[in-house]
Amino acid sequence: MFSNRIELFSILGFRVSVDLSWIILAVLITWSLATGYFPRIIDGVSPVAAWWLGAAGAVGLFASIILHEFAHSWIARQFDMPIRGITLFIFGGVAEMEDEPPSARAEFFMAIAGPLMSYALALLFYGLSGLLPVEMLAALLTYLATINTMLATFNLIPAFPLDGGRVFRAALWWKTNDYAKATRIAASLGRFFGMVLIMSGVLSLVAGNPIAGIWQGLIGFFIIAVANSSEFQMTLKTGFEDKTVGQIMVRDPVSIPADTPLEDVIEDYFYRRHHRVFPVVRGSTLLGCIRVEDVGRIAREEWAQKTAGDVLPTAGKIGTVTPETPVMEALKRMRELETSRLMVAKNGELRGMLTLRDIMSYLTIRQELNASGRQHRSA
Rank of each mutant, 00 (worst) to 15 (best):
F70Y: 14
D268F: 07
A227W: 10
V277L: 12
R351P: 00
T238Q: 10
K306I: 01
A95I: 02
G85F: 01
F38Q: 07
K317T: 08
A49K: 14
I211V: 12
A139E: 09
F168V: 07
R366K: 13
N347M: 11
N4K: 15
A170Y: 05
F193G: 04
K175W: 14
N155M: 07
G85W: 10
P261R: 07
D358G: 09
D19R: 07
N155E: 06
N228M: 15
P261E: 03
A171P: 00
I147P: 02
R5V: 02
T30V: 06
L128D: 03
W31D: 07
A152G: 13
T30D: 02
R272D: 12
G201K: 06
I211D: 00
N209I: 07
S255K: 13
L197N: 05
L354I: 10
E100L: 14
P279S: 06
A371L: 15
S188E: 02
A71K: 06
S361N: 14
I86S: 09
R276M: 11
I214V: 15
R333N: 03
L356D: 01
A49N: 15
P326F: 03
N177I: 01
I41D: 00
R191G: 04
I90A: 13
M360L: 13
D80N: 11
A106L: 07
A315F: 08
R341S: 13
S46N: 02
G114F: 02
M117C: 13
W31Y: 13
I83R: 04
I214N: 01
W31F: 12
A49M: 15
Y269A: 02
V196N: 00
I11M: 14
Q247I: 00
A345V: 01
V167H: 00
Y271A: 10
I219S: 08
V27I: 13
A330S: 11
I24V: 15
M199V: 15
I42Q: 00
D178Q: 09
A182D: 09
R272P: 01
P102Q: 08
A225R: 06
L137V: 10
M328S: 01
I318Y: 12
A258W: 10
E107C: 07
A111S: 11
Y362N: 10
M117N: 07
R374V: 00
V226G: 03
A106D: 03
G352K: 09
S10Y: 02
F168L: 14
P101A: 14
L312H: 04
P313G: 06
G220D: 06
G348H: 01
G85T: 01
V94M: 11
R276T: 14
L369P: 01
I290W: 01
A76P: 12
M117P: 00
I86C: 09
I29K: 04
E96I: 04
D259C: 00
R273T: 02
V226E: 04
M199S: 13
R40E: 13
G92E: 11
A63E: 00
L53V: 03
S204W: 10
L12S: 10
S3W: 14
H275M: 14
M249E: 06
L172A: 02
G164I: 11
D163W: 05
M234I: 01
Q233R: 15
I83H: 02
V18T: 04
T35M: 06
L25V: 15
S21Q: 12
L8F: 04
E349V: 13
